[in-house]
């Protein structure tokens, strides 16, 4: 495993030159964030699996064209974003709130979170999840990108191909609706 301080961009360049250890490090760093972004966008684990794999496939195929000027995380998420958009354009039905909740409940929860003493937290998380799923796709995407990857307005705007003000507006709506749901 390579040094944790090694920048993603350098790792990507190293992988483009054939360094598989660089890829392993990069993958380990990005896999969770990417997967959650996709899963929260499509709300279907099978689809998320498919799009997750396809995202990496496209990154691998384009590795020699990668330029260090592009922030790696933004590039990776942009590939995923395009796939998510394509997925919805193909007309696949988006998972309902109930389906998403079922999926999320199937995911492994930390052992410490036993129902008897984490009920309050669970309820809060459930409400947050329902609020997220109820958001329009564009608002949810902006919110997830902000929370999951720590991207700024400019980066989200670049990634989604929209203006910064549009992104800010989407985030404002998302923030307001989630707070409203949590306060119920």
């Amino acid at each position: 495993m390579m040094d944790a301080a090694y920048p993603d961009e350098k790792l990507m360049q190293a992988y483009a030159r054939g360094d598989l250890r660089a890829f392993d490090t990069l993958y380990a760093r990005s896999r969770g964030m990417l997967y959650r972004y996709i899963l929260r966008s499509v709300a279907d684990r099978a689809v998320a699996d498919e799009l997750f794999q396809e995202t990496w496939s496209r990154l691998i195929a384009a590795r020699e064209r990668y330029r260090v000027e592009a922030k790696f995380t933004t590039w990776l998420l942009q590939i995923a974003h395009n796939l998510v958009v394509d997925h919805f354009r193909r007309g696949r039905p988006q998972a309902s709130v109930e389906e998403t909740e079922t999926v999320l409940r199937e995911l492994d929860a930390p052992e410490s979170e036993r129902p008897d003493h984490a009920l309050s937290d669970f309820e809060e998380r459930r409400r947050l999840q329902i609020a997220l799923d109820a958001l329009p796709a564009e608002q949810r995407e902006a919110f997830v990108l902000r929370m999951e990857s720590g991207l700024g307005l400019a980066e989200i705007a670049q990634l989604t191909g929209t203006g910064q003000e549009t992104v800010k507006s989407r985030l404002r709506y998302a923030f307001a609706k989630i707070r409203e749901r949590l306060a119920e």
């Binding site: 598989l20 392993d24 993958y27 969770g32 959650r36 998320a48 997750f52 990496w56 999320l104």
Partner: peptide, 17 residues
Amino acid sequence: PQAEPDARLDSAVQAMA
């Protein structure tokens, strides 16, 4: 829940690389 890809998916991607 911090959803993550499962081991099968990890193996598939790394094999692809």
